[in-house]
Amino acid sequence: MKTSADLINLLNLQEVNERTFLGESVTIGSAIVFGGQVLAQAVNAAYRTIPENRFLHSLHSYFLEAGDLKVPISYDVAIMRDGGSFATRRVTASQNGKTIFILAASFHKKEEGFEHQTEMNTSIKQPEELLSWEEMAVKFGDFLPKGVKSFLSIERPIDFKPVVVPNPLKPENKEAKEEIWFKLKGDIPEMDLRLKHQILTYISDYNVLNAAFNPNAKNYSFANTMTASLDHSMWFFRDFDFDDWMLFSADSPNTYGARGLCRGNIFTRDGKLVASFAQEGLMRPIQK
């Protein structure tokens, strides 16, 4: 995948019947299906059963099994409730008859009410001052470990620019937080709020556990740690557009027992809070 159009095509599931849909997979460098893809495709399936005047406001999910990149994923939607203001759906994703993922999602009609939001960190560097993953691979590729260079060089429909770049040759323990600017690549088509939610859900599973690894960076590496997303939750607040850079801002209150918890917010460049997220992930040291 190279552009936003490629990503949109990936998330648009094939309809089997009014409550069952099929999705294909594209690797992001791993041997298994990217969790953000399953999340976003499940949101697509749920939205296909929702009235047009209801919009996703929260989702809660569990990753149960690793997904096979070569096997289509079946998404089955159960209608749990259609009320006057809210609608709830349960989506079960499966391959070869085995459940690999479950999602509960709630949709709300637009209403007016009270308002406040947390503020974005405005003291950080702007995207124009930073290098993207692809630019890092080109500029520092000869000095990077092979695995790091390979990961940074993968073609993606999103540009990522971390605010703080760790030195992979001399790792240092850092504060338990992560801030990354991101932007869709290519021409960005007109999108309704439903499609924006699906794309933002896909992106939200990138980088999320970094905040939990940062305080242990001296001891952690891809080679000595088994990692996996265990669950993922999101809350959606305000409409937005993908026409400029957005900020992914996460912190980690705890790592313990081979698990790490991360939480955070997603802002538009001008500081509008559009979503919050939380994820617990496996961080298991490999015993040699």
Rank of each mutant, 00 (worst) to 15 (best):
M1F: 09
S4T: 15
N12Y: 12
N12S: 15
E15S: 15
E15K: 15
V16W: 01
E18A: 14
T20G: 06
T20P: 06
S25P: 09
T27Q: 07
G29S: 09
G29C: 07
S30P: 02
A31C: 02
I32S: 14
G35W: 03
Q37C: 02
V38K: 01
Q41Y: 04
A42G: 11
T49C: 12
E52M: 13
N53I: 11
R54N: 11
H57A: 07
S58P: 04
H60V: 03
S61D: 02
Y62T: 12
F63Q: 13
A66T: 12
P72V: 06
I73W: 05
S74M: 15
M80A: 10
M80Y: 05
G83E: 01
S85C: 08
T88Q: 12
T88N: 13
N96A: 11
G97M: 09
I102A: 03
I102V: 15
A104W: 08
S106D: 01
F107Y: 10
G113C: 06
F114G: 00
E115Q: 09
Q117P: 00
T118W: 08
E119L: 12
N121F: 08
Q126H: 12
E128Q: 14
E129G: 00
M136R: 10
A137R: 08
V138N: 05
K139G: 00
D142G: 04
F143V: 08
F143T: 14
L144D: 11
L144A: 08
V148A: 05
L152N: 08
E155C: 00
E155W: 00
F160D: 11
P162W: 06
P168I: 10
L169I: 08
E172T: 10
W181Q: 05
W181R: 06
F182N: 05
L184E: 07
K185R: 14
G186E: 08
I188S: 02
I188P: 00
D192N: 15
L193D: 07
L195I: 13
L200P: 05
L200G: 03
I203N: 02
D205H: 06
N210L: 12
A212G: 11
P215R: 04
S221D: 04
A223W: 08
A223Y: 05
A223N: 07
T225E: 04
T227D: 03
S229W: 09
L230Q: 03
D231P: 04
S233Y: 03
W235E: 05
D239R: 04
D239M: 04
D239V: 03
D241H: 13
D241W: 02
L247V: 02
L247S: 00
A250R: 09
A250G: 11
D251W: 04
N254I: 12
N254K: 12
Y256Q: 15
A258W: 07
A258Q: 14
R259W: 03
R269G: 10
D270G: 05
K272L: 14
L273R: 02
S276E: 01
S276A: 13
F277Y: 10
A278Y: 01
L282G: 00
R284E: 06
Q287F: 08
Q287H: 12
K288L: 13
